[in-house]
Write a protein that binds this DNA or RNA. Structure first.
Lengths: 346, 346
DNA sequence: TAGTAACGGGAAAACGCATTCCGCACTCTT
DNA sequence: AAGAGTGCGGAATGCGTTTTCCCGTTACTA
């Protein structure tokens, strides 16, 4: 019994329909360097149209020895931070005629490693890791080895926001942004701070917290360890962090810094749930400037990262010349955005 | 001059390293039905490990005549509605050993059509269209033709939230949800409504608006045309819609319904910008129950869609038996969630 | 007008893998 | 002990393309 499905139209079919050889059909339909006589080309094009032919990308890939795909790894696609970066990557990829495949690591180093291995099988042109990765010694070195194997076969790998990897990187100025934020907040009159951060192994969180504390220190202000709580790097983590801070006793704290916006927003809800009004009762600041911070009340003070541009830059980097030497990557700068959640204090 | 890059390891290499034939190597490394003597299999596995071999997925696809990829089309990945659905699709795909490739249509029917054509070249197992699509006669029929061609070659296509397509569909009860919402709101004491909707061609928006007006009508309440504004299906659209409503003169309106949450949230900001306090001054309700509605103030009344489950169901559907007859698809139900943005009114 | 250089079509060889088919070496039957 | 399976390795074929290589035409040069 035969399958109920038709076989897809192949190049062979269109060549036969056009009455030319496979070679000529191939040359007519893709951007070959060889010229083919107009008459033949037109016949081929017409046949392709008539048969509704689409080239088999897999077959092209094996014949050409190269795909047109870029693999994107994110920690969590429903997090607006990553979905904005993804939007940038996709936009720029499609402009370049590249297809993007996407996977999520859930911040699990083992899963990330497994995915990179699987992705290598795809033989993508580019692998973009927008991780917010947790760094552990051994998973790190396996990952580097895997990625170096990939690069050695001609692939490009670019990291987003990891400055400690031997690959191209879109460096986000987490430290500087948090530092500047601290400075501005002190300028507004704040003196007593608390912070909610992610696990220490989360480099992004660590950098931001360090920038913040350093910024405060330069103003002669201390951020004591008992006023720093660690929580999940999510909205619920922020909520829990605020709750914990309240339980510990807020004392004279006048501002809570959440190391990213979703945590800061969660913290605002946590405060409100405890009867403390964010903004007037307790100032809150975040980091990232995701879309929704304009719509919460009070609007959240934060540090702006041009997330879509970050995604675009990542691809730009991968598409460009292979960098040599130490300076691999581009820097994207951050900018403090003061809003109602941190009213001036006198 | 030779390329600076090593060629990737091929199955041939591991076969040679293990001292067996290509066939044996292939059989050892993939789930073939044929048994291979343990000694040989072990040698192959060891060789593969040693050489860090990963099978070339494209070549496998060509040889097997089938890929392991699912193509996902969304309107806008940075919209939480879609990113949540995408999270579900990705989760379920990875469980099934499938790789997902993602593209964004920007709600442009031409772009959508072009993407589907390009995607067909990928020969994915499944195409998921989570569109929020704009329906126009001719683009619609071309799309259907393209997708039918895809299905006729054995592919599966599933739509999210379109009940008018001749394909498997995850049907979201937009009409019923909006209807129930209207009923509940009247129960809370609201009597004078306004609505902000998307372009009429946007089926999702239209269904919700219809459900809402029908629900009101059944309670003897009219939603006059001049109190319905049309705007972009985005946060900014909601903001603009609210502004327009205010300019028209709100009169005795006591509740504004935004046909999706991002619009409703934008509307809240629009109201606030005009000095009207959402919740106390003017009730607002949305639709979708995206993550952030819990964190805006007041928390937004909405209709809950289990978005991640929707993505999972879409894949479930595609993975299952090919349905015959008229009943293609699953229904996912919606649930009204009352929050502070619509306080009881007496 | 002879000689040669470009041009361009087609046959055939890759590309990396899965799979069919062949044949050898066994193990059961009776 | 002979015939009939059965298990399993390997050579060969095929998947849909691209690309190399060969060769017949045409056009140009001297």
């Amino acid at each position: 019994m035969s399958s109920p499905f038709k076989a897809p139209i192949t190049l062979h079919d269109v060549a036969r329909e056009a009455g030319v050889s496979l070679a000529t059909a191939s040359r007519s339909l893709n951007g070959s360097t060889r010229k083919v006589k107009d008459e033949f080309r037109d016949r081929v094009l017409a046949a392709a149209l008539k048969l509704n032919y689409t080239p088999n990308l897999s077959a092209q890939a094996v014949a050409r020895g190269a795909t047109t795909s870029v693999a994107l790894l994110v920690a969590d696609i429903s997090d607006p931070y990553f979905s904005s970066i993804a939007a940038g990557v996709i936009e720029r990829s499609e402009d370049a005629g590249l297809i993007v495949t996407m996977s999520v690591t859930k911040r699990d180093p083992d899963k990330e490693l497994a995915l990179v291995r699987a992705l290598r099988g795809q033989r993508p042109r580019i692998i973009v890791l927008a991780g917010s990765r947790i760094a552990t010694e051994q998973s790190q070195s396996s990952l580097v080895a895997e990625l170096e194997a990939f690069e050695s076969t001609g692939g490009r790998v670019v990291f987003v926001s990891r400055n400690d990897m031997p690959f191209d990187t879109v460096r986000i100025n987490n430290y500087g942004g948090a530092h500047a934020l601290a400075t501005e907040l002190v300028g507004l009159g704040y003196r007593n701070f608390a912070a909610i951060t992610g696990q220490r192994e989360l480099l992004t969180a660590a950098d931001r917290l360090r920038g913040f504390t350093d910024g405060l220190a330069e103003q002669g202000i201390d951020l004591p360890a008992e006023r720093i709580v660690t929580a999940e790097f999510t909205r619920d983590g922020g909520f829990a962090g605020a709750t914990e801070l309240i339980e510990r006793g807020l004392g004279d704290v006048d501002l809570i810094f959440g190391v990213n916006d979703v945590m800061a927003i969660g913290a605002m809800s946590g405060l409100r749930a405890a009867g403390i009004e964010p903004g007037t009762g307790m100032a809150v600041a975040g980091f990232d400037d995701i879309q929704t911070v304009r719509d919460v009340t009070p609007a959240l003070t934060t540090v702006r990262i041009p997330l879509v541009d970050v995604g675009i830059s990542a691809l730009e980097l991968a598409l460009g010349e292979r960098a040599v030497g130490a300076d691999r990557g581009v820097d994207v700068d951050t900018e403090v955005v003061l809003r109602a959640s941190t009213p001036p204090r006198h």
